[in-house]
Design a protein around this nucleic acid. Structure first.
Lengths: 206, 206, 206, 206
DNA sequence: GTGGTCTAGACCACA
DNA sequence: GTGGTCTAGACCACG
């Protein structure tokens, strides 16, 4: 018979295996936010690994925002609430490593915002609308008074509120992450032109 | 005279300090993707820390997709292109931690896929279309021959190809991450309804 | 005169020679279970062979259950007590290679179990009976609570305890090896009829 | 909630992973006795491992009797027919490592033989009975002529034929392995007493 | 022979 | 007492 083909082997390192186990317990609901893992020394013994390797795993999960390590006698490794800001970090790193481009990010943002507006129109609740309206007023005031940086801040807040109005945290997370980067560029632009305007104003006073 | 104010001391953990140093070199352009860091033992000595601590730092950067550690005599720590799979982990963890729900994920997936189809139609190139068509053929074959798990695998691949056809890696990353989780559920469902493999094997030998 | 007869020459491979040497030391009582061999590098030098060849030899002996290789600063190659699980591998391989059939295995299992029950009745000690009783309780609990996979695990443990109760490790090894394969089939069957775990997990979190 | 308990982690070494893969293909029936594995270099590339590690795996499977490595132009790694003698080796090693005792072995042998006789009576075919009868005649002849060692050899053959008469290779393998060791003791005893008898005969001649 | 991985056990800083 | 840090030395894998 024909020689079978074999897939490449990937031997997991010990700490990866440990991460996987803990994430499993999480997915199964055995571990929930707020829970505390056994002490490092004890857990290491339970898993039959050295403390160093266990620490590599815990560090990894801490970086991922899954755990929070606290020192002291009442300390330990605690399961955390999910942190929606992690996606922002991913986007930022992708950009700075050149994996994605500003053009792709902007394009994606336009399309996703289009989607967000539709969803927000369909699902926004009273409180969402009130918050949006209040934000718009603040924005107009800042515009009229020429507080440019405040205006940018209002704008960022606007998108955050809009995202929340969709009632879908996945969508919200996505749009937040791309908007966050977009606004950083806007902020930088405005800040630099702000300096120019300040000089202009000063000149005019002379 | 005014009492001097002291900034709170934040004793960074050693490995965080190391991460920072390496990221600095990256931001300064001294290190670029593809570059190789000194060997563990040597770098540890250069930094004046133990190899364990250095490993914690390297591990962090590897998790963040900045580095890739390779074994062997030609091995070492290499600066990497960004890793698209990080977003999958984020999604998975958010779900596990209960920050987002399956309902939100499914809903988001439907809307994002809608967007993806539009973009793919507009931007797909010849090679993309060929790959999609080949995938569809494989899927039909698997369906006809009753290879259920293979069919699921084809399906997963289909969405990946579709995402790539948009020509926008940001969009692709997003749809990949939500689809990955979706397919995990599908896979579990199909696998649980699978037949006993052992009997089949015995039959084949006869 | 009669033509002389020559015995076929068997050029031993180096690693076989090394295995033989170590087994000799074992048979002579120079090495005993628990003893530690010199470090890889040193032993390789003593024997005048490369580390790779030595590793092959140590690997062979580890597979044969004679050695146990442990990592770390207190690690090394330690002479071990015999490993009962080797017979399981033999059974599994015989089945895979088609030397024995599932039918023969099942038949053998029935007859051997019959024997085991007799011996266990005759020789079981207080501790054995206690362990069996505790196992039965766990089994009933798992049954009542519908934890199917746990129930299978209990069942496997039951046969192990029963085998141990005979007070004869040879008999125990035999019944363990055939039961192991039997339970593998049972496990596969039960697992394939399992419910979706993910939904359960989500429910638990709510 | 209560801290969950974690099971010990077992990180497989690369060569163990490879063995597992090959055994899987075997269990699934993709590989069958007589099949040839890809060449070392190619297989190593397919698996993404170094040749050294692959060799460790192949060696391991050769020791286990699953593979046979042949040198030369038409050489390679061939899947073998299962070798029933492997269980003998296991028994012998267990005994020499002190895991099992002679007492346990003898006891087990008595009980298993009891079982074998029953099964042989029920399942023996004409050819089996003929072979047994021929063996008995040879035995009687050897006894009458005082060829003690030949008599032992006949006895060993008798048990082998009896085992084969059960029509169950699993049972046969088991009884063969325990009988093999038993007969070694008998052989040693007879051989030493044979020397004594030979001297006696010599004395008588004087 | 080089470099990555893992281990045991120690000491320190903290709450 | 907990996490944080560190060391020396062993196996594991590569070319």
């Amino acid at each position: 018979s024909a020689a079978p083909t074999f897939k490449p082997i990937h031997t997991r390192r010990t700490f990866e295996e440990i991460c996987e186990r803990i994430r499993e317990q999480l997915a199964l609901g055995v571990l929930k936010p707020g829970d505390k893992l056994p002490a490092e020394r004890e857990l290491a013994q339970q898993l039959g690994v050295s403390r160093n390797v266990l620490r590599e795993a815990l560090r990894s999960l801490e970086m991922a925002g899954v755990l929070k390590l606290q020192k002291g006698v009442k300390g330990g490794a605690f399961i955390q609430q999910g942190d929606t800001r992690r996606m922002n970090e991913v986007m930022r790193d992708m950009l700075s490593l050149g994996t994605i481009s500003v053009r792709e990010l902007s394009e994606a943002r336009v399309h996703v915002l289009d989607l967000v507006v539709q969803l927000a129109c369909a699902n926004a609740r009273r409180a969402d609308l009130d918050a949006l309206e209040a934000n718009i007023e603040r924005t107009e005031l800042a515009t009229k008074e020429g507080r440019l940086l405040d205006r940018v801040e209002c704008s960022r807040e606007f998108y955050k509120l809009l995202a929340a109005s969709t009632g879908n945290k996945v969508i919200a997370m996505i749009v937040d992450s791309v908007t966050e980067i977009h606004m950083r560029f806007v902020y930088a632009k405005v800040a630099s032109s702000g300096v120019a305007m300040a000089r202009l104003a000063e000149k005019r006073r002379q």
